[in-house]
Design a protein around this nucleic acid. Structure first.
Lengths: 134, 134
DNA sequence: CATAAAGGTTTCCTTCACTGGAAGGTCAAG
DNA sequence: CTTGACCTTCCAGTGAAGGAAACCTTTATG
C-alpha cells in the first residue's frame, strides 16, 4: 500500500506519516521505486497512533503505549499508569482553562462594548497592585 | 532599571522579556554599557503582557490589546471583540478537552490495572471499524 | 588593588508535532 | 508524448520561549 492509501484509511496526513517514520514510530518497507510500502500491520499501528494522539497523548506517551500494545506479557497496570498520569494532566489543564474562562467571561460581561474608550478588560490587564482587588 | 529588576517586578523571566523586545512588544532604552534600561512605562507594559498571556491571549492578541490600551480614543467594542473571540477559542478547547477527559476516564475506570495483560485502554486504541462502538 | 561572583550582553541551537514548499522522480491514462 | 496524480528528499518555519556558550560590566570582598 502506498502512503496515499494509508493516509486515506487512517485519516492521517501523508506528511504526518512520513514524520512518524522519521521518528521511528513506524517502519514501512520500500518498493524498488523508492516508494514506502505499508503492510496491514503498519496501517493498524498508524490508526492506533491517530487515536492515541486524538486523545491528547504526547508522541512519547504514544511510543510507550505502542510498545505495551505490542508486548503480550504487559501488565495492564502499566497502561493504566500512563493513562492516569495523562488524565491528571488533562484535569490540571481543564482547571487552568476553566479559571481563565471565568475571569475572561466576567470581564467580557462587564465591558459595554460600545464606541466609548472605558473598558474594564483593559483596566484589569493594566492593574497595578495599588488599584487591585476585583 | 535593569532586566533583572523588571523580571522580579513583573514575574516574567528575563528570557521572555528579551524575547518580547525582539518581537517589538516593548522597546527599552540602552545604557552606555549596552544594558537594557527599562522605564516605568515599560514595566507597566510588561505587567500588562504577563496578565494578558496568563489569560491565554496569544502574542498577537496581546499586541492588539496593547495598541488599544495605548489608544485613548479606542472603542471598548474593539477590545471586547478580541476578548470574545478568545473566549470562544477557550470554550472550544474546553469542550475538546472535556470530551477527551470523559473518554479517557471511562477507559481508565474500565481497566483493571493489575498484572494481567488485558487492557480496555489498549483495546480501544487498537479499534478496527469492525469491532467498533463503545 | 586584585579578584571573584553576580548579573548583563550576544548568538545560536533545541523544543513539539507537525506543516508547507521547492525540485525532481515515477506511473497510468489519453 | 504529455499531462497530471502521486511519490521522493530536503529545507524552512511555526509559538513562545528554554538552554548553553562565550564574553563584558558591576559590585562585593580579601
Amino acid at each position: 500500500m502506498n502512503i496515499g492509501d494509508v493516509s486515506q484509511r487512517t485519516g492521517l496526513p501523508a506528511k504526518t506519516i512520513r514524520y512518524y517514520e522519521e521518528i521511528d514510530l513506524v517502519r514501512p518497507l520500500r518498493g524498488e521505486n523508492g516508494y514506502r510500502r505499508f503492510r496491514e500491520h503498519d496501517v493498524h499501528k498508524l490508526g492506533f497512533l491517530g487515536r492515541a494522539r486524538s486523545l491528547g497523548f504526547s508522541i512519547e506517551d504514544c511510543r510507550g503505549l505502542l510498545a505495551l500494545y505490542e508486548d503480550d506479557s504487559r501488565a495492564s497496570a502499566d497502561v493504566r499508569r500512563i493513562a492516569k498520569a495523562h488524565l491528571e494532566r488533562i484535569d490540571a489543564k481543564l482547571a487552568r482553562l476553566g479559571a481563565m474562562r471565568a475571569t475572561l467571561a466576567h470581564l467580557v460581561e462587564a465591558c459595554a462594548g460600545d464606541h466609548r474608550p472605558d473598558c474594564p478588560i483593559l483596566a484589569d490587564l493594566a492593574l497595578e497592585e495599588d488599584s487591585a482587588d476585583i
